[in-house]
Structure formats: structure tokens, C-alpha cells
């Protein structure tokens, strides 16, 4: 057996840290964190929508709307408020059937602020007979007059039934001509009314490229198209 032994390494030998290296490493880490933070901040700012916007939302509370449809409509509005619109965007909510009522007006930071309103005044509320979206559009135009410097998005939450097609088309034509109206979202329409909604009641908006219709299964797609439309306004 060899009499030679390998040199033994001691764990604590040479463990003294070089202060210069430690300082350099610290400076490097701080610089990296600062660069990463700045990049994240700039990216976040770049994703923001700079155009001043306002939202009007009309919920159809007629007897033809089921509770699930109303919940779907509320979920869509929450997504619009939460994901698309900048914080503190002026928002006005109406509910309508044969008549129209204003139920809420605020500048919410998050969609959670509208939960109580949605649950009490829309989901659990059953209105009278009749569906008059033209009245919502009229109220919307009055609302738009309050903020002449903003662009507007109208959300008409209905199953697509319309008792006044002629008046609705007239109001739609006005909105189509109004350059401040960026988009009009209609849904969740049932399949039976969808063709009429796109080609008849809101045809002027459709022709102007401002109409976004969603049904029972393509709400997120309509949301994505709306987002693209608003981002296009930035340019």
C-alpha cells in the first residue's frame, strides 16, 4: 500500500470572501434587477391604452332574458371593465325593457366594484314586457354629450329581440356616423336573432365596422376583437 496520502481539503480554508468581488457581484445584481424592472415597467406602459374612453352598458331585463344570459352579460362587462378599459373609465349602466332606467354610474378601478350592482339590479331583476334598445342608444348619446373629449363603447346586453326595429336602425345609423363612438357590442344574442341583429337592426354599425356581436359561446372572441379595435384607435 502506498504510504502517500492525498492532501485533505478543509471546508473552511480559503472561505474568506473577497470584498471587491462581493461588491462587484452586489452591484451587478442591483444593476440587473434595475434593468429588468425598467424593462417590465416600460413594457407595461406600452401595453396601456392611452385614448380616453367611456363605457355605456344597457342590460335587457325583459322576460325573454334568462338568468344565465344576464350572468353571461355581466361577466362580459366585467371583462371589459377589468381587462380592456383603463382604470377609472367613466361607466354608466342602464337596464331596459319597454322602459329604461339608469342603475349605476361611476369610474371603477376594477370590475369587482360593480359586483353588487350587477347581482342586485340585473341578475336578480325581472323587468316588464318589451325590448327597446333604441332607448338605450338615445341615453347613450346623452351620456356621450357629457364627455366630448372621449371615445365611447356601448355594450347592449340583449338576446337580440327588438320590438322597434325601425327606431333602432335609425339610432344605429346615428351612432355609426358619430366618430366618437368607437364600438357597439351586442350580445349574448341567441342564434335565432343573430342574423337580424347583424344585418337589420344594427346594419349601419355593421357597415361602419363598429358592431361586435357575440353569442352564447364566442364572448371571449368578441372581447379580443374589441380590444384590437381600441388598440387600433391608438394609432
Amino acid at each position: 500500500m502506498s504510504r502517500y496520502r492525498g492532501s485533505r481539503s478543509y471546508r473552511h480554508e480559503g472561505d474568506a470572501q473577497n470584498p471587491l468581488l462581493t461588491g462587484l457581484a452586489l452591484v451587478g445584481i442591483i444593476a440587473a434587477v434595475a434593468v429588468a424592472g425598467r424593462w417590465i415597467w416600460n413594457y407595461s406602459r406600452a401595453q396601456d391604452i392611452k385614448t380616453p374612453l367611456a363605457v355605456g352598458a344597457g342590460f335587457d331585463v325583459s322576460q325573454s332574458m334568462s338568468k344565465e344570459q344576464k350572468q353571461r352579460a355581466v361577466a362580459f362587462l366585467n371583462k371589459v371593465i377589468g381587462e380592456v378599459m383603463p382604470a377609472r373609465t367613466p361607466t354608466k349602466i342602464w337596464r331596459y325593457a319597454e322602459t329604461i332606467e339608469t342603475v349605476h354610474e361611476s369610474r371603477p378601478i376594477a370590475s369587482k366594484e360593480l359586483n353588487t350592482v350587477s347581482r342586485e339590479t340585473i341578475e336578480n331583476y325581472l323587468g316588464k314586457w318589451g325590448t327597446r334598445p333604441d332607448k338605450v342608444m338615445q341615453e347613450f348619446q346623452r351620456f356621450a354629450a357629457q364627455y366630448p373629449e372621449r371615445k365611447f363603447v356601448l355594450c347592449l346586453f340583449t338576446d337580440g329581440e327588438c320590438h322597434t326595429p325601425k327606431e333602432t336602425r335609425e339610432q344605429a345609423a346615428r351612432l355609426a356616423q358619430d366618430s366618437r363612438v368607437a364600438a357597439v357590442v351586442v350580445g349574448p344574442v341567441i342564434n335565432r336573432y343573430r342574423r337580424a341583429v347583424e344585418n337589420s337592426y344594427y346594419a349601419p354599425l355593421h357597415d361602419a365596422g363598429k358592431l361586435f356581436v357575440f353569442g352564447e359561446t364566442d364572448g371571449l372572441d368578441a372581447l379580443a376583437r374589441l380590444k384590437e379595435r381600441l388598440r387600433a384607435l391608438e394609432n
Binding site: I40, W41, Y43, S44, Q47, E83, A110
Partner: peptide
């Protein structure tokens, strides 16, 4: 605590909040 939500997490401009 209500500072974040699924909607906020899906917003590009809220990336700094996530970070």
C-alpha cells in the same frame, strides 16, 4: 387582498404588478 385578479393578470399593462 383584492389588489390582483384574473383580469389584471391577463392585462399586459399589469405586468409590473405581477412582477
Amino acid at each position: 387582498t383584492g389588489l390582483l385578479s384574473l383580469e389584471v393578470l391577463q392585462r399586459g399593462e399589469a405586468l409590473w404588478l405581477v412582477a
